[in-house]
Design a protein around this nucleic acid. Structure first.
Lengths: 240, 240
DNA sequence: AAAATAGTGTCTATGAGACACTATAGT
DNA sequence: ACTATAGTGTCTCATAGACACTATTTT
């Protein structure tokens, strides 16, 4: 870092953190990675993975570092969400947090879970459409989880963003394995939107989007006519 | 501010600023408020209004303070845009900036301009649709302006956001006086989107949106049949 | 009267929803 | 053969674009 502004560091200024909302879909429902806090405040409650931003590190690099350290993930869909900066959002100090959200298929998460301090919480969205607001979280046993800080609200903003985006941007694919059927894709959209969708129209819309490439292969072992497997076709330039 | 985390302030951490992209429409073109910098770096270049975030102040309050101090404005549409945090974006120090964008009808700006250190720059968007990228700026004399820091890119993100939003959110009204004609509203949409729109369809869409309330009055002095004046109808709860 | 835009009515093309029907795997 | 979902074809309805026509102001 340059030091052409020598007086700057002498004044107190807000601390800067990043938090990541890591979303996936399990059993037709949105889930988010939460960690159990070991310290005050909110000891024992669940929070999003977060870290302070280092002076030499970009915001995106800090979020990617979090994903590596807390979920052993790299190269996942990651997008900046919103910056939360209410003075009282953290009782310890003034900490402004740049929130990001990440999307990952559940298959890439299985191994990194297990301990009770790291949980894939099911998200219950208590509002419809694009209303917005905090969400509720439930543990693997179905019990409601205590969520620390403003992280239930941050997750609500992530759900809102995803709902607003899934209809026109290719984000549904990020929650599925490389090969998937149209039904699986539709179920992802339904889980995100919280509604049921018309099968015929969804099918037409997806096939007309030009983003699906048929693999020629079919699923198997399903007890009915197997569906064709598709793959996401990045339109021109890769977006990461 | 509480001091329950005593060690925190001893470590260097990024500085935090807010910048505001104040947009308006003049003569059918998007314009943005820029200030001429009096100091290095970028002395003499034009930049967005910006300020450091105070420790006890919310991010939105800092943006509102900027609008009051630099443009004598209060109660305008203001929304968080994106947070820019590349380590090298400011050559002096690591400064992360939470960018906001504001929309205001040009009538509310006229008095606060005038000096040559404060200019409404015309925005030239060198890309189509939702492609994105930095924009070019032109002064009142049409000459290209030098823009400091990453502020041409930030303004590009603001234009992108506005383009993505104007079709489904009531933001066009924020760029018009309280009473306006449908043609004026269409011209605002065209200026934002950078395209021409179908008159019939635009008219139907707006009237069907339920957001316009006819005033019963008509414009006058226009050399042709006068159009009815409409007013924006906030649907239920006011959004500010 | 001419010019210019406001505003209405109607036709057409497109896309979504609905539904009927055929296809193909496992059991 | 039965069941369940895949996938196709077609009809209808809603909406956007196109266009013709009438209305109302200033000059």
């Amino acid at each position: 870092m340059k030091d052409a502004a020598p007086g700057l560091d002498r004044f107190p200024h807000p601390h800067l953190a990043v938090d990541v909302v890591l979303l996936t879909i399990v059993e037709g429902a949105l889930h988010v990675l939460l960690l159990r806090r070991g310290e005050e405040p909110f000891r024992g409650a669940f929070v999003l993975p977060g870290t302070f931003v280092r002076v030499e590190e970009s915001l995106e690099a800090a979020a990617e570092r979090l994903l590596r350290e807390k979920a052993d993930l790299r190269d996942v869909f990651l997008e900046q969400l919103y910056t939360f900066g209410e003075p009282q959002r953290d009782p310890r100090a003034r900490i402004v947090s740049v929130a990001w959200y990440a999307l990952v298929p559940p298959q890439r998460l299985e191994e990194s879970l297990g301990g009770s301090d790291r949980v894939l919480a099911r998200i219950a969205v208590p509002w419809e459409g694009l209303t917005g607001g905090p969400v509720r979280m439930h543990g693997p046993d179905g019990a409601a989880l205590k969520v620390g800080f403003d992280h239930a609200a941050i997750t609500g903003v992530a759900v809102l963003r995803l709902r607003g985006k899934i209809d026109y941007a290719p984000v549904g694919f990020e929650l599925l394995p490389k090969d998937f059927t149209l039904l699986q894709l539709q179920q992802v959209h339904e889980a995100v939107l919280g509604t049921s969708l018309n099968k015929d129209s969804f099918r037409r819309r997806m096939l007309a989007s030009g983003r699906l490439r048929a693999t020629g292969r079919k699923e198997d072992g399903v007890g009915h006519r197997p569906a064709e497997l598709f793959r996401f076709q990045r339109d021109r330039a890769s977006r990461r």
